[in-house]
């Protein structure tokens, strides 16, 4: 894959050197200048809307103590300072449980739960999309139905089950429940439906086992889908303080610890809170950017030749 990208870059370079106009202007993307400006404008305006809260948090995290409580509130900071981040560091190093423990918990739980969820959801989606298994329709309608339930109501029954299994205060209570989540399954099935049966059949005729078909044909073809699912799943697990099942301080996750730091004392911690929020936003954001750079290049090659 990588060498192929390089080769393509070379081709592009050659085209650029020889001033081949088509390297720059692909007909599908040409549009009147007015149209381009309009599209860029829409993108910028809506983009600003999306980015404002983050910018606000970032700016507020740099505000010194006096500036946070100015009334009327100001958007921009006048005298930026790193005090809030330093304070965050000091507070977190004074915690009863070492801060690195929370970080470890969060990373461990987020990574293992995400990979479990993605693998199991994709594996389950494959037969639902492409096999004739008994009760396929029923299973799929159950999946869709289960998406519609107000999840807050199952908190207490879920707690009862966890208690019976003896999983309260264990990592298992954090990692295993996403196995049964149906959003990923629904998403993956919808994407796998689009793979033509003919390539699966030709692989079968060539003697590939189901496992091989799954890993070498199905999964590469829906790579954008499962990478996207990875992003969703990671960010929701990462952000979830998961306070229902964990009462042992040593097993608590980063958002729970951050909540304690922020809300623990008083509103004077607002700046520290903003610093904490910015800190917590980074991992999902970095993962997103890393994955998106991957996704963009893969599909041009993995696409099914029609």
């Amino acid at each position: 894959m990588h060498s192929r990208t390089k080769r393509l870059n070379m081709q592009l370079l050659i085209k650029i050197i020889f001033r081949d106009e088509r390297a720059f202007v692909r007909k599908r993307y040409t549009r009147s200048t007015g149209g381009n400006v309009f599209v860029m404008l829409v993108l910028i305006i809506t983009g600003c809307f999306m980015a404002l809260p983050l910018v606000y948090a970032l700016v507020s995290s740099l505000k010194p103590f006096e500036e946070i409580f100015i009334f009327p509130p100001r958007f921009f900071v006048r005298r930026p300072t790193l005090d809030n981040f330093i304070n965050l560091f000091i507070i977190s190093s004074n915690l009863w449980v070492p801060f690195s423990r929370y970080i470890f918990n969060s990373i461990f739980v987020a990574f293992s739960a995400t990979s479990l969820h993605v693998i199991i959801a994709s594996a389950a989606a494959y037969p639902l999309a492409k096999h004739d298994i008994p009760g396929k329709k029923i299973i799929f309608s159950v999946v869709v139905l289960s998406l519609m339930f107000v999840s807050q109501v199952t908190f207490i029954p879920q707690y009862i089950i966890m208690a019976r299994l003896g999983w309260i205060n264990t990592y298992a209570s954090l990692i295993l429940p996403p196995i049964g989540a149906s959003l990923g399954l629904f998403l993956m099935r919808q994407f796998m439906e689009g793979i033509p049966d003919s390539i699966l059949e030709s692989a079968k005729i060539d003697g590939a086992s189901e496992y091989r078909i799954f890993f070498t044909i199905v999964m590469p073809n829906v790579k954008p889908a499962w990478l996207t699912l990875t992003i969703f799943s990671f960010q929701s697990i990462w952000n979830n303080p998961a306070l229902q099942f964990i009462y042992n301080e040593e097993l608590k996750l980063l958002p729970a610890a951050m909540n304690q730091i922020i809300t623990g004392n008083n509103i004077a911690r607002l700046g520290v809170g903003m610093a904490a929020a910015v800190f917590l936003l980074l991992p999902p954001l970095i993962l997103f950017i890393v994955i998106q750079t991957r996704v963009i290049e893969t599909m041009a090659y993995a696409g099914i030749k029609g």
């Binding site: 959801a121 037969p127 639902l128 289960s146 879920q158 089950i161 196995i179 049964g180 149906s182 399954l185």
Partner: peptide, 14 residues
């Protein structure tokens, strides 16, 4: 393929 999900689903959701 679908079994692990079904077990998880029955236990944690159904």
């Amino acid at each position: 393929f679908i079994m692990p999900w079904i077990i998880g689903f029955l236990l944690f959701f159904a």
